[in-house]
C-alpha cells in the first residue's frame, strides 16, 4: 500500500482517535448533542491538526528535544487562537455553540499526541496527510455520535426537525457515555471482522503456492480461514 494511503487509512480508521484510541473524550462527550456541533468541532480540530502538524514537521530539526513539548504547545495554542478568531469573524454561530470547548482544543490529546508521535519525526507532506486524516477520523466519529444523539434525543437531523419523539437521556451526559460506548463496541466489532477477513485473505494468498488455487477441489475459503 502506498505510504500516504496507509497514513490516511491509519488516521481515519485503523487508529481512529475517537473510537480506537479513545482520545479527545471531553469534547466528544460534551459537543455531540447535535450533529452540526460534532462536525464543527471535528473540522476545527482537523484545521488545527493540519496546521500544527505542518509547522511542527517543518521545525522538527530546529526544536531541541528538551523543549519540544512547550514548543508544541505554543504552536498549537497559536493555531487554536487564530482558528478562534477566524470562527468568530466568519462563523459566529458555530463559535458561540462551541463555547469553552473551542479554546480547550489546545489541550486536546489528539493534537499533542500526533505532534509528538508523528509530526516531530516525519516529513511535511506525511505530517499534513496524517493531520488531515486523523482530523477527519475524529470529525467522522463526532458526526456519527452527533447524528445518533440528535436523532434520538431531539428528533432532528442537522437541525431539521423530523419528528416530535424525543428521548431526553440521549442529550444528557449519561446518554453521551452510552452512545460513545455503543459506537466503540460497534467500531471494534466491525474492525475486528474486517481484520479477520483481511488475515484470512492473506492466509489464502500465502497458501496458494503450496497448496494450489483456492477453488481446487476439497479446499474452501472457510476451511482456509
Amino acid at each position: 500500500m502506498n505510504k500516504y494511503v496507509k497514513t490516511a487509512v491509519d488516521g481515519l480508521i485503523t487508529n481512529n482517535a475517537t473510537f480506537k484510541l479513545v482520545l479527545g473524550t471531553c469534547a466528544t462527550l460534551a459537543l455531540t448533542t447535535s450533529a452540526i456541533n460534532g462536525v464543527g468541532m471535528g473540522l476545527s480540530v482537523t484545521a488545527v491538526l493540519l496546521l500544527s502538524n505542518v509547522v511542527i514537521s517543518l521545525l522538527r530539526k530546529v526544536i531541541p528535544n528538551t523543549v519540544r513539548i512547550p514548543a508544541f504547545i505554543v504552536i498549537i495554542a497559536t493555531m487554536v487562537t487564530i482558528l478562534r478568531m477566524a470562527l468568530d469573524k466568519f462563523l459566529p454561530d458555530l463559535y458561540d455553540s462551541m463555547g469553552v470547548f473551542l479554546p480547550l482544543i489546545v489541550v486536546n490529546c489528539i493534537i499533542l499526541g500526533r505532534a509528538e508521535a508523528f509530526a516531530s519525526k516525519q516529513p511535511v507532506l506525511d505530517s499534513a496527510i496524517d493531520g488531515v486524516a486523523t482530523g477527519l477520523g475524529f470529525t467522522a466519529a463526532l458526526t456519527i455520535m452527533g447524528v445518533i444523539r440528535e436523532l434520538l434525543g431531539s428528533g432532528s437531523f442537522f437541525g431539521i426537525q423530523l419528528w416530535d419523539f424525543k428521548i431526553g437521556f440521549f442529550t444528557s451526559s449519561a446518554g453521551a457515555f452510552f452512545v460513545y460506548g455503543m459506537c466503540i463496541a460497534l467500531f471494534t466489532l466491525i474492525s475486528n471482522r474486517v481484520e479477520y477477513a483481511h488475515r484470512a485473505r492473506k492466509a489464502r494468498e500465502l497458501r496458494v503456492p503450496a497448496e494450489g488455487p483456492l477453488d481446487a477441489p476439497g479446499i474452501s475459503a472457510k476451511e482456509e480461514a
Partner: peptide, 11 residues
C-alpha cells in the same frame, strides 16, 4: 450573546 464561562450551551 456571549457566555465564555458556560460549558454546555450546546444543550
Amino acid at each position: 450573546d456571549t457566555s465564555d464561562g458556560e460549558t454546555l450551551l450546546g444543550n
